[in-house]
Amino acid sequence: GATAVSEWTEYKTADGKTYYYNNRTEESTWEKPQELK
């Protein structure tokens, strides 16, 4: 299949934890999204 550009962006909180934000759905998660595995 075609490689889609991930909708997920990786961010870090002030205390250094990583989370992921989906630009399309406006969803955020602590877990690494399936698309990034």
Rank of each mutant, 00 (worst) to 15 (best):
T13W: 02
A2H: 14
S28D: 03
T29G: 03
T9M: 11
T18C: 10
G1D: 12
Y21I: 06
Y19W: 14
Y20E: 00
T29I: 08
V5S: 12
Y19M: 08
K32A: 06
P33M: 02
Y11V: 14
K37N: 14
L36P: 04
K17R: 15
A14N: 08
E27S: 05
E31A: 06
Y20L: 00
N23Y: 12
L36K: 04
Q34D: 15
G1M: 14
D15N: 08
T29V: 13
E10D: 02
P33F: 03
K12E: 05
E10I: 10
E7W: 07
T25W: 03
T13E: 02
T29D: 03
Y20F: 07
A2E: 13
P33I: 02
Y20M: 00
E7S: 05
E31T: 10
Q34Y: 11
T18V: 13
T3V: 12
E35M: 06
N23H: 15
Y21R: 05
Q34I: 12
R24E: 08
A2R: 08
N22L: 01
T3P: 13
N23E: 11
R24T: 10
A4N: 13
K37M: 15
E10F: 04
R24M: 10
N23K: 13
T29R: 11
T9Y: 08
S28T: 15
R24H: 09
S6H: 10
T25G: 01
R24K: 11
D15L: 04
E31V: 11
T3F: 09
A14M: 08
T9S: 11
Y19G: 04
T25H: 01
W30K: 04
A2W: 11
K32E: 08
T18K: 06
K12P: 02
G1N: 13
T13K: 03
Y20G: 00
Q34V: 13
W8N: 00
E7G: 09
A14V: 11
K32T: 09
T3W: 09
K32P: 07
Y11W: 07
Y19F: 12
K17H: 08
Q34W: 14
Q34E: 15
E10M: 09
N22P: 00
E10P: 05
A14K: 12
D15E: 09
S6T: 11
T13P: 00
T18A: 06
E26C: 15
Y19I: 09
T25F: 02
T9W: 09
G16Y: 01
E10R: 03
T3K: 07
V5G: 12
A4I: 14
E10W: 05
T9P: 00
E31F: 09
Q34M: 12
Y19Q: 03
D15G: 07
T9H: 10
G1V: 14
T18G: 01
W30V: 06
A14H: 10
K17N: 06
N22F: 01
G1R: 09
K32N: 05
T18S: 10
K17Y: 09
T29Y: 07
T13F: 03
T3N: 14
Q34T: 12
T25R: 02
T25E: 02
N22K: 01
V5Q: 14
T25I: 03
T3L: 12
T3D: 13
K17I: 09
N22Q: 01
Q34L: 13
E31S: 06
T13L: 05
P33Y: 03
T9G: 06
T29P: 01
V5H: 12
W30S: 09
S6R: 10
Y11F: 13
D15C: 15
N23F: 11
T25S: 04
R24V: 14
P33K: 01
G1I: 14
Q34H: 11
T25L: 03
E7F: 09
S6N: 12
Y11D: 01
V5D: 11
